[in-house]
Amino acid sequence: MAGSWVDAILAAGAVPASYVPDASAGRTDLEEFTGADLVEDAELRTRSVADARPLSPGAVGFLDGIEQWRVVGYGGVTPIVRGYVAAAVRRRGPDRRLRTGSELSRELAVTRLASLAAPVRRALETCGVDVVEFAAEDAGQPARAIQAARRELERARLALERALAERCLAGLGPDEWLVVDGVLSDSVALSAHPRAVGVIKSHGAQYFEGAELERALTLPAGHRTSVFEPRSRGARRAIYSWYLRFWPWEGNDLLYGLVRVEARAHPDTLARASALSAWLERERSPLSTPDARWDRLLYPIHDVETYLRSRAPRDLLSPPGSRLPRTGS
């Protein structure tokens, strides 16, 4: 049925379009100062992980998701977006090779039904595709509508990832860990699990100020900060977190090679923060180049993404050609 609903809405009078808006995907961190409570030291310190014995789990699952989208039509000025979200866990055993454990994907249409002409709306409602609506107040302006559609898609992806993560946790072996690309704190199951780790590459949220912020952001390579607990906001669960630097930032940028790690809010986490960090540091190799975020992107996560992209519907990829007006067929 992939995409066949697009034909149905076009037949019902929607004007065809083919447009992939520029947008950065990826799980975003909160984008403001929230504050944090230190759990390890009296004030934020930096600690070398060089001497810690790295954790070496027998098996590790790596979870990541992707979203792909395209504006496929307009009903009036209301965009109708075709979206595709997918998530997978790739498992690494003793042979050090990655194999797909489980995966989920979903195709959806994102629009505002009430803003569409009746035949187009009916076509969408009857052709069996999942329809996700953005808010009425975003529907009027196409630029806002597209941003809203993107947020809906991201939400759908996060939900898919969460569902997959929870399913995966249920089957996790005693010596098996799950590494998630992004935060754990938006899932009850993930944030409570003893062997789940979140690795966050983007640093929108600020947990510190002043000297502590400086200490966090100028962390030397091979070091981590003290463990802290971000102040919870909204639906977020309690979690322990710390910063970890993979590569020296001097000569690059403050955030170069800097990740934030999340793990269960539990004394055990405190006890093995260094061991966990040392393990993650080992995951720097192999490099995940040519991805531009290779300084923070773990190779297995990169691998999950490559895997998912290779399985996404071909017709959702950006067209290689130009956006010249269509001719002929």
Partner: peptide, 9 residues
């Protein structure tokens, strides 16, 4: 190089 936790594709 042989100690990398993951083997490349």
């Amino acid at each position: 190089a042989a100690e990398s936790p993951t083997v490349r594709q």
